[in-house]
Nucleic acid binder design. Structure first.
Lengths: 343, 343
DNA sequence: CTGTTAGCGCTTTCAC
DNA sequence: GTGAAAGCGCTAACAG
C-alpha cells in the first residue's frame, strides 16, 4: 500500500522535493503554472502528506490529551461529543483516557500523555495534589491545560465549567418555594465542584432563613463499585427517613448520585415525590421517562467540549507562543428542567 | 520545555547515539554496565522517546481510528470505555469520530483517517455502499478493519457483535409466553443489525404459530433530529393503538428507539405495561429507574470494545504481516433484564 | 561491545 | 522560481 510521497512527485514531474513541498503549501515563491501541475498530480494520485514527518519537523505532535473520570457517564460522553464534532476534520488528534476518579491512574495517564508528547491537555481532574502539581509542571513547560467541569482548583489556567453556585441556589430555592424546608444535600468527594455547589445550598438556606443543619449534608465516596455506592446511599437514606425529622427533599450534586439515589429510594420503597422530592444534576437525555420524571439540572456539556477545543485551537495555532496568555475562567449557564420528581 | 533526546544523552555520557538507542531498548549487544549507566541517566533526566520519530522510522502511526454513530449514545460510549481501558497505557492512539449515521460524513471521516495514516480502523458502519467500498479498499491496502455492532455487511474482515437473531428471538418468546400475540417490531434503517433482528422476530412468531403481519414491522428513519423521530413514533403509535387490532406489545430494536418509544408512549398517554408491554435494546445503566422499570436487552458493550482492541493489538504487534489472516466473526451473548415494562 | 552512517518524509534556509 | 542540503529524533545495517 505504498503511499505516494513528495519525493515520488518530485521525481515523476522532474522537480526537486523543495519545490514540491512549497507548491503543495501554496507558497508564493512558486510559479502558478508549477503549482497547478504539482497540485493536480498530487490530487490525482491521492497524495496524503505524512503528518508525522511534518510534526517531527515542527517539533509538535498535534495531540490533545483528555482525561475524564468515566466515558460511560453521559455528561462526559457529551463533552467528548462536543470536542469531537469540532476536531474531527482538523489535523489534531484526541487521546482519551479515563481516570475512574483514581488519582493514581490519573497520574499515570498524565505521564503517558506527556510521554506521547501531547501538545495540550483537557482534564476533569480528581483534584489530587500530586496530579495538580504535575499539571502545573506541564503548564510551566508550555503545555496548555484546560480544566473542565471541576474548575475549583488552585492552578492558574484555562477553566470551563458552569456557575455551580448559582444553579444549585436556584434548584434549592425551587424546592423551598414548594414548601420543602428540610433538604438533604448529597455530593461526592470531588473538591472540584462540590464546594461551590454546597455553598449554593447553604447560602440559599440562609437567604430563606432556614437553619443550616450539617447532618443534612452528605458526602459520598463514589469512587468504587456501583453496588457499594448504592448500599451507602440506601443505608443513609433508610436512616434519614426513619429519623424523627425526616428530610422533605433531596438535592443530588452529580449525575451518578442522582441516578443512584433514585434507585436507592425505589429499592427501599420511598415514593418520589410523595414522601421525598428529588432534584439533581442529570445529563442523560431521557430523564423524562424516569419514575417519576426527573427534575434535572442539565449542563451545556457539548458546549463545554467545543469551547475547550476552541481555546486550544486558538492557542496552538498561534505561532506566537510568547503571547501574554490571558487565562479565562468560563462559566456557562446550566439549566433546570422542572418535572414531577420535585413536585 | 526542551525535551531530552538520545543525542543529548549520548553527548552527556560520551557514547554514540547508536549505543544509546540500543541500550534504551535493552539490546543484548550492549554491556550491562553501559546499559545501566545510560538507562539510569535517561530515567533521572526524564527522557521520553519521541514516538513520532520512532514511528516515522518504522513507517507506522500506531493510530487506531474509530467511527461510531454517536458517542453520546450509552451503548457506543461503553464500547469506547472498553477500548480505552485496554489501550490507554499502550503506545497506540485512538482517534474517535462520529458519523451521526450520515454516510457522507462517514466517508469524510474514513478519508481523514486514511490521511492521518491510521494503522487500523474500528467502525460501526452505516452500511452505505460507497463507505463499504472504501473500507474494502483500505483493507486491501493492508489496514485491518474491525466491524463492531453492525456486522452484517458484505466485507470479509473481523467482526464483533452479538447474536442478534437469538436474543431477539428470546425477547419475543418472552412476550408471547406472557400472552402477547400481537407484537409490534420497531427498528431503524441500519442494514447492519436490523435484518438479523427482524429475522429473530419473524422466526419466533412462526415457531409459535402466530401469523406474521407486515404492518407490525416498523422501520424508522432515526438519522434526524430527536423531535422529528419522536413525532414519527407518536404518529405511528397513535395510529396503532386506535386501530381495530391494537398491538399488545412492542419490541424496539435499538437503544435510541427504546427510549424514544417510551417517551412517545408517555406523551400520548399510553400506560406501560397495562395497555402495551415494551421490551427493547437498552444499554443505559439505570433503566431500572425508568417509568416503568424497563425490560432491557443489554449488550456486552465494554467487551465488544476490549475484544476489538485485543484483535488489533495482536495483528499490529505481529511483525509478520504476511500471516494468513483468519477473519473471525465474534458473536457475544446479549442478556435480557426482565422487568416491569413487559409484564 | 560500541561507533558511524543512512534515511523515514517533510520543511526551511540559502544558493543560484 | 527553483534546487540543494541540512536536520527534526530515531533505528538498523554495517564496520570496527
Amino acid at each position: 500500500m505504498k503511499r505516494i510521497t513528495i519525493k515520488n512527485i518530485a521525481k515523476a514531474l522532474g522537480y526537486s522535493v523543495g519545490t514540491v513541498s512549497k507548491a503543495l503549501s501554496n507558497s508564493h515563491e512558486i510559479s502558478s503554472l508549477t503549482k497547478v501541475k504539482i497540485q493536480n498530480f498530487a490530487h490525482e494520485n491521492g497524495y496524503q502528506s505524512n503528518q508525522y514527518a511534518k510534526l517531527l519537523r515542527k517539533g509538535r505532535t498535534n495531540i490533545i490529551g483528555m482525561i475524564v473520570p468515566s466515558i460511560g457517564n453521559p455528561f462526559f460522553s457529551q463533552i467528548l461529543e462536543g470536542i469531537e464534532r469540532e476536531m474531527s476534520e482538523t489535523a489534531y488528534n484526541l487521546i482519551i483516557m479515563q481516570s475512574v476518579d483514581d488519582p493514581q491512574l490519573e497520574l499515570k495517564h498524565l505521564e503517558m500523555l506527556s510521554k506521547k508528547g501531547a501538545d495540550a491537555i483537557v482534564i476533569a481532574a480528581t483534584g489530587n495534589s500530586i496530579s495538580l502539581k504535575y499539571l502545573r509542571k506541564l503548564k510551566n513547560e508550555g503545555t496548555p491545560i484546560v480544566l473542565i467541569d471541576r474548575t475549583n482548583y488552585d492552578i492558574n489556567t484555562y477553566k470551563i465549567g458552569i456557575d455551580n453556585f448559582k444553579v444549585v441556589y436556584e434548584g434549592i430555592s425551587q424546592l423551598i418555594n414548594r414548601g420543602k424546608r428540610k433538604i438533604l444535600f448529597i455530593s461526592n468527594l470531588s473538591p472540584g465542584t462540590s464546594s461551590e455547589r454546597r455553598r449554593g445550598y447553604i447560602q440559599c438556606l440562609r437567604d430563606f432563613d432556614i437553619a443550616y443543619n450539617s447532618n443534612y449534608v452528605l458526602s459520598i465516596e463514589t469512587n468504587r463499585r456501583r453496588i457499594d455506592v448504592l448500599d451507602q446511599l440506601k443505608n443513609h437514606l433508610t436512616h434519614f427517613v426513619n429519623s424523627s425529622t425526616p428530610p422533605q427533599a433531596i438535592f443530588t450534586a452529580s449525575d451518578q448520585l442522582t441516578y443512584l439515589t433514585l434507585e436507592a429510594l425505589h429499592t427501599i420503597g420511598i415514593s418520589v415525590p410523595d414522601r421525598l422530592a428529588l432534584i439533581g444534576f442529570a445529563n442523560f437525555q431521557y430523564t423524562n421517562i424516569f419514575q417519576p420524571s426527573l427534575s434535572s439540572i442539565v449542563q451545556p456539556s457539548r458546549e463545554i467540549g467545543s469551547q475547550a477545543f476552541a481555546i486550544l485551537h486558538k492557542i496552538l495555532d498561534s505561532s506566537d507562543n510568547e503571547i501574554a496568555t490571558q487565562y479565562q475562567n468560563i462559566e456557562l449557564q446550566a439549566s433546570i428542567l422542572t418535572r414531577k420528581s420535585s413536585e
